[in-house]
């Protein structure tokens, strides 16, 4: 048990180093960034610029600004947005985190559960027609960019069939359906493929053979002995899958005009809104490292070989 805890502790230290590295890099990059954050740069007089620099704290020496930035960040304070009506970045983002999180979680649940079922069926009927269909779905899901999917879904189900709202976030759950489906394609394809390979390997293992020798039916063998063993390694790709969800949310939120983090991020990038870019960058990085940590802990809990032994590390 102690081995496992030591491992987790080690992971937390790395996680903090990673975050420190990212925040410092972001801060430095932002400072040397070409272009000005003020949209009306040309029209500003030197005096005005000084006033604005002082107001946003841009006139202080780099070191001091770094300390202010870092200490603010620890308190969750990312300063004031340079673009969007002088609001604090924190309040801009906190309003937007809800929709993004909801979409992400819905897409993850939808994508992985459909993917798991598809992958499992494909593995059980390996090299059959069903398997070919699942492989085709997985390949298309992996290959067709999610923004192409999003546009097609929008056109078909919103514009032509009028089943769901075209865009925006004002129709409750209905508004979430199309963006969720568009986002879920990539985790669905990934998990279907992953579970298929995993399950094929598991189904060829000796303990499955033994389960068959006990006289269990193929479905029962697959569910009771196969699935659990195939699912555990799926945890390891939760990290990469959430990254692709984050990436996907940038375009999907834009296409469906959803007031989420992704949409704000793109807007901020376009307008050189430094403080918001830094905040979103940190938010994404923190989420990713937290997910990676969570995955490690979860893996340790779910797999009894690691839980008790702890010798794996």
């Amino acid at each position: 048990m102690s081995g496992f805890f030591r491992f987790i502790l080690k992971r937390i230290v790395y996680m903090l180093i990673t975050l420190l590295l990212i925040s410092s890099c972001t801060f430095l990059l932002m400072n040397f960034l070409p272009g000005s954050p003020y949209g009306n740069e040309e029209k500003l007089t030197n005096k005005q610029r000084e006033v604005m620099n002082e107001r946003y704290g841009l006139n202080k020496p780099l070191g001091e600004r770094y300390i202010i930035y870092m200490s603010g960040m620890l308190k969750g304070d990312f300063g004031i947005s340079l673009q969007f009506g002088d609001q604090p970045v924190r309040s801009i983002l906190s309003k937007r985190i809800g929709p993004s999180l909801q979409l992400g979680i819905q897409a993850m649940i939808l994508g992985t559960s459909v993917g798991i079922i598809l992958g499992m069926i494909a593995a059980m009927f390996q090299n059959s027609f069903i398997d070919a269909i699942v492989s085709l779905i997985a390949i298309i899901g992996r290959s067709v960019p999610n923004f192409v999917f999003a546009v097609l879904l929008q056109l078909l189900f919103a514009v032509y069939l009028k089943l769901f709202p075209i865009a925006l976030w004002d129709k409750g759950f209905l508004s979430t359906v199309l963006p969720t489906v568009a986002l879920s394609v990539s985790p669905m394809a990934d998990s279907a493929r992953f579970i298929r390979t995993e399950m094929i390997e598991v189904l060829n293992s000796d303990y499955i053979e033994l389960a068959r020798a006990k006289g269990m039916s193929e479905w029962r063998v697959a569910f009771k002995h196969g699935l659990r063993n195939a699912l555990i390694p799926l945890i390891t790709i939760l990290g990469p899958m959430s990254v692709s969800l984050m990436t996907g949310s940038l375009v999907v939120e834009n296409i469906f005009a959803i007031p989420g983090i992704g949409e704000q991020f793109v807007k901020s990038i376009m307008t050189n809104d430094y403080s918001t870019i830094m905040a979103v960058t940190m938010l994404y990085s923190t989420m990713l490292v937290t997910i990676i940590l969570f995955v490690d802990i979860l893996y340790g809990i779910v797999d009894p070989r690691i839980r008790v032994g702890g010798g794996e590390y």
Binding site: D206, Y207, L210, A211, A213, K214, H225, R228, D303, P304
Partner: peptide
């Protein structure tokens, strides 16, 4: 009819 397999290290389900 029951069967005992060759490799006991892999014949048991590790998660049960």
């Amino acid at each position: 009819i029951a069967m005992v397999f060759q490799d006991p290290m892999t014949s048991l389900n590790p998660t049960m």
